[in-house]
Amino acid sequence: MTEDQKELLESEAHPLDGFLREGRIPHIFCPACSLGSITNVLIEAINESGIDPKKIAVVSGIGCTGRIAGYLNFDSFHTTHGRSIPFAIGLSVTDPERKVIVVSGDGDLFAIGGNHFIHAARRNANITVICVNNFNYGMTGGQAGPTTYAGQFQTTAPYGSLEEPFNIPNLAASCGAVYVARYTALDVRRVKEAFSEAIAKNGFSFVEVLGSCPTTYGRRNQLAEGKKILEFFAEKTVLNHDADTRDVRIDKDSPIIVGKFVDIEDKPTLTDNLLALQRVSQAKKG
């Protein structure tokens, strides 16, 4: 242990002091929920990015994950259900230097907000989108959602869901995202790495984190106790950076494929295009 670390251990201070809003903790997350550790690594990634904190804005929609924005001590915006992405675009294009990070859940981003996601990816909006996928609507009591896989039980799928869930990384990739990665909340090291890379990226970067929701997902799917979901992830996860995103769909029995699937350089962003448009329009005869 270094002297610095020792000092920190003995002091009242916490390494994340200043990054969380005073008076907002304790958070609302359930015991064994992964949102706490995800918040933690997100802060670390932002901190290590070296970006001026003034230039960071965090936006979320509605849901458990959507509450993360409000705990972070940056300019933070807790919008309406599904609408974080267009809000983030408005913030992003009004200052090309601004780094806008969207953190929200699977239901928020891919059910009610799905249309915004695909168009933001298509336009290559200069934002980072982090989706914590817990396979259900946690905050409202465990209803099935767009990521609920066939055979999964939720309050609105009492006989088990029959629908095909979204293959989110494939959706992002096929709509034009310049960075697409998926990891489980168990693998905090890679999650953090993915956050860092996504934040450093220009353009529409996307990270899916498979989160653990013991309360409303685990309880109905024999994964309720403590770290059961994480163990389930540990058993099922296969790391494959070269996987074709068409092959990374999630179902009840197959392995969960994780990795960095897309990483594209130098694609003009929405902001680049808007600035180019300003130049073109101003060069024309008045």
Partner: peptide, 8 residues
């Protein structure tokens, strides 16, 4: 919602 974002 985009114009709310831009306003902020």
């Amino acid at each position: 919602i985009g114009i709310l974002g831009a306003s902020w």
